[in-house]
């Protein structure tokens, strides 16, 4: 939801499916989106592609932006665990505002959906 909202704020046509779909597709309307998503996925999975994804992102965006990307990967691997380990329900405004694309993208099938009546 914040991806969509922040894209709208700068009149960018962000494609959420590229970010949350099964396969990383294109840039999703976000500069360097493909490299950022590949890096996030490889780092989160700890996959063999991480070294290449890291090098490609660093070469494209430079050190300062790379640090920010790594920080976001790190902290969100904590945040998702807070949400699921404590079972917090989705905040009401987010719940109401995301119904359409949650269904469209299959997010309602995630097991954490049961925490939100």
């Amino acid at each position: 939801m914040l991806l969509r909202a922040s894209g709208q704020a700068i009149d960018a046509a962000v494609e959420i499916e590229g970010a949350v779909g099964a396969v990383v597709k294109g840039d999703g309307g976000v500069p360097c989106g493909h490299l950022l998503a590949q890096f996030a996925e490889a780092a989160t999975r700890g996959s063999e592609e991480l070294a290449d994804a890291r090098a490609a992102l660093l070469a494209e965006v430079g050190g300062e932006r790379f640090i920010e990307a790594a920080a976001t990967v790190g902290v969100f691997n904590g945040l998702v665990r807070v949400a699921d380990a404590t079972g917090i329900p989705l905040d009401a405004p987010t719940h109401a505002g995301s119904a359409g694309f949650r269904q469209e993208l299959g997010l309602d099938a995630f097991s954490g959906a049961r925490n939100t009546p």
Binding site: L2, L3, S6, G7, A9, I10, A12, V14, I16, A19, V20, V24, G28, G29, V30, P31, C32, G33, L36, A37, F39, A40, E41, T44, R65, E68, A69, T72, V73, F76, N77, L79, V80
Partner: peptide
């Protein structure tokens, strides 16, 4: 940018 950060967050 905010969308770049949120893209990473969404992927994670």
């Amino acid at each position: 940018s905010r969308p770049q950060v949120e893209l990473i967050a969404a992927r994670v």
